[in-house]
Amino acid sequence: MFTRCFRSQRIMVPRLPAALAIVIGTSALAGSPTSEKPPTAGDASPAAGTVAPPAAQAEPIEPSPEPLQGPVALDLLDLFVHPIGPEGMEFSEKTRSLDGKRVVVEGYMVRQELPYGKRFLLTTRPVILEEDEMGPGDDLPPQTIFCFLPDNLAMTVVYTPARLRLTGTLRLGHREEPDNMVSFVRLLLEPPEKPSPDSTPDAAPADAPAPPGQP
């Protein structure tokens, strides 16, 4: 699937893939390209194909104190004040203003060695996290978001290399995760919408190579 997607990008500018990186069982819904434009800051309407009905939203970790509103686009590169100073980072004003609110972000799922469970990391560029070999020594960009699936969904995460567009509720603040990682930016994902015919990937040509399997 990825081979097809990657090759097709050459004639699909500015097509961007958009979907949740969630699978039910082993059937990945992730990485399905669509032809919609990426949302811009201030968008008030839900992004098609990524937002579940409000009634279906789950809050597995931190209940939202506010009613649902349309997601606001948040660029990962704008999470922090630039340039980063000599010590800690600082949330940008926009990031702080979105704490507890619905946002839509784009980025790449970090490839991990250990099982994902119901959490994965999203960051600005493709990165391999060699946590089994290297421990917490990593090549993660600072702009990394911890993304959590709703607890009440029988879903697990599998890796996908595609650029992802995710919608959920943003949570800020220090928290030590069960695997000893420390999170500061979390995204409580909304359940995925069922794939529509419009979001089905292009059919592969008859002579297309077999897609690489999930590692």
């Binding site: 990008q9 500015p14 590169l77 490839r111 990165v127 290399p161 190579p209 690489p212």
Partner: peptide, 28 residues
Amino acid sequence: SQQPLVGSAPLNTYPALPINRDTAGNFL
């Protein structure tokens, strides 16, 4: 220049894993 998203932000669309990288030539 082969990458279609040159100039877009974020800039890098390259896949993360060797198995997902360099797939266009289909030489596994």
